[in-house]
């Protein structure tokens, strides 16, 4: 047809996605918001696990003194990070599913694929595990001789 572009359904969908995400800047704004959220979430989890580690340094020292290897203690810390990730993910997912209904009522259709939830879980898990890494350094340097000091 003259003066008209013709697209297949898939092509038009792709073009629309590119328009909204790239040309309008919405995609970048959304990406930056998501990145900042991950950074803030990771910092909070990291600080919480670090504070918990500092609070329990004496117990970690005792564990080392009675024969635990650093890697046994890392397991404890990373398990805490894993549990935090799972709880956070579950609460977040429930929240998303609850607000989806409201958003759809407002006229915006929200498509949430199962793969998105899987990817999201691994992003959260990775963020929590990386955040726990600061605590691991503290425990690695912990000298078990401290348990003899009162």
């Amino acid at each position: 047809m003259r003066d008209n572009d013709v697209y297949s359904k898939e092509e038009f969908a792709r073009k629309t996605v590119i328009y909204w995400t790239v040309q309008t800047g919405m995609g970048m704004a959304f990406f930056i918001m998501a990145a900042i959220t991950i950074l803030i979430g990771g910092t909070i989890v990291g600080q919480t696990i670090y504070a918990s580690t500092m609070e329990h340094l004496r117990e970690y020292g005792t564990l080392k003194a009675i024969g635990a290897r650093n890697r046994d203690i890392y397991q404890v810390i990373f398990s805490q990070a894993g549990i935090s990730a799972t709880i956070g993910y579950t609460i977040g997912t429930i929240f998303i599913l609850l607000v989806r209904g409201g958003i759809e009522k407002a006229g915006v259709s929200l498509y949430l694929s199962p793969i998105l939830f899987i990817i999201l879980f691994f992003i959260i898990l990775l963020t929590c595990l990386l955040s726990a890494y600061f605590s691991v350094g503290k425990v690695r340097r912990l000298d078990p001789v401290t348990v003899f000091r009162g």
Binding site: T62, A65, I66, R69, V147
Partner: peptide
């Protein structure tokens, strides 16, 4: 050292720990 402590030594501390 952790293996030696785990295998051969038992500790009792002043503050119980």
């Amino acid at each position: 050292f952790p293996f030696i402590r785990k295998q051969y030594l038992g500790f009792v501390f002043q503050s119980f720990n």
